[in-house]
Design a protein around this nucleic acid. Sequence first.
DNA 1: TGAATGACTGACTAAACAGTCACTAAATTA
DNA 2: TAATTTAGTGACTGTTTAGTCAGTCATTCA
Lengths: 192, 192
Amino acid sequence: MQSESMDKREKLLQTALELFVKQGFNDTPTSKIAKEAGIATGTLFYFFPTKDELIISLYLKVKGQATESINVALTEVKSTKEVIKTYYEQSLKWSLRNPNEFSFLAQFSNSPYLKKIGADEISAQIAPVLPHFRLAIEEQQIVDIDVNLLYALISNQVFGVNQFLSANKFTKKEQHNIIQDTFFMFWKMIER
Amino acid sequence: MQSESMDKREKLLQTALELFVKQGFNDTPTSKIAKEAGIATGTLFYFFPTKDELIISLYLKVKGQATESINVALTEVKSTKEVIKTYYEQSLKWSLRNPNEFSFLAQFSNSPYLKKIGADEISAQIAPVLPHFRLAIEEQQIVDIDVNLLYALISNQVFGVNQFLSANKFTKKEQHNIIQDTFFMFWKMIER
DNA sequence: TGAATGACTGACTAAACAGTCACTAAATTA
DNA sequence: TAATTTAGTGACTGTTTAGTCAGTCATTCA
C-alpha cells in the first residue's frame, strides 16, 4: 500500500527533524533515527540513498512547507502595504508555530549543507515575494532599494523578533502586540 | 618556550576555523585538523581535551575578538546616536573583514553547540552595549522597547546586510554607501 | 495459480573516528 | 648535574558509523 510507505518516509523525516534540532547533524546517526522511528536502518536507506540526501530532502520539504503556508496567505490580500505586512506576520507566525522546523532551517542555512543545494532552488523560494516588493517600489510606497536587500532585511528582522519572542515567555496578546509593533517599525524603516 | 606552544595552539584553532567553515563540524575530523596544521593528533588533545572543547574554545576566542574590536571603537565616541551608529558600522565592517570568523559564529550559534556554553557567557558578550541602548531610550532619542529586542534587531540587520553584501560584488565605495544607507534606515526605524 | 514487483528488514562490514598512551626532547628548577 | 616539569609525538585501539545485502512478506498482475 502506498500510503503506508509514505507514512514510514514521513515518520523518518519527522524523527530526523527532532533529533537534528536536539543533537545536531553530527550526533544524530542514521541508526538512531531509524531506531527512534521504529523503522529498520535498511528502510531509511531504501528511501534516502545517503544521509546527506535525507538531510537535504528534509530541508526542501520544510522550506517548501513554510513558503507555501506564507504564500497561501498572500493570495487573499489586497493593497501593497497589506502584502508586505501579511508576509511579515505570516513568516513570524509560522516560525512560532513550528519552532523545530524553524530551528532546523536556521541550522541548515548556516551550515555548509546550504551549498549542497542548487542556487536556483534557493532563488525559487525567494522569487514569489520579489514582484510584490518591486510593485511597492514602483508605486513609490517604499524606498528604492535592491529587492534582494529588502528580502534580507525583512527575513532577518523576522528572525530577530522570533529570537526575542522565543527567548521570553509572552502571552498570546503580548506576542501579537510585539509582532504588530515591530512591523510598524519595519514599515517606518522602508516607507517613502 | 611559551610562544611556541601558543603558536601551535593558535595554528590548530586557525586551521580548525577554516576547515569548519569549509566542511562543517561533521566532516572535519580531528585527524584532518592536525594533519592540515602540520601538528600531531596527540598535540591537539594535549591542548584541547575533547573535540567539543576545541570547538567551544574557538567560539569563545572568535566571539571575544569580535566583541573587543567593536567595543574599542565605541570608547572613542561621543553622542548617543553616534554610539549606535558606530556599533552598527563596526559590527558590519568586522564581519566583512573576517568572513570566515563570521561564518563560523553563525554556524555555531545556530547549532546545538550554542547550548553547551553558559547563558551568562552569552549575556556577558551582549552586556556592554545594553547601557548605551538604555541611555538612548532615557534620552528619548529612540522608541521605548526592550533593549534585548533592540539588540536582536540591530544584530540581525547587520547579519542581513552582511548577507547581501557578501552575495554580491560591490566596490568599497558602494559597500560604504550601503552601510550608511541601511544604518540611516535602521535609525529611522527606532528613532522617536 | 504463480510469477513478478515493491516495500521493508536487520545482521553485517569496512572505514573512519575520537581519544589514549608510552614515549622523547627540551627546558626549568633545585 | 640531576630531577622534574612541560610540550609534543604518532602508532594504536575500541567504538561508532554509513551504507550493504541477501532475503522475507504482501500485494499486484497475467
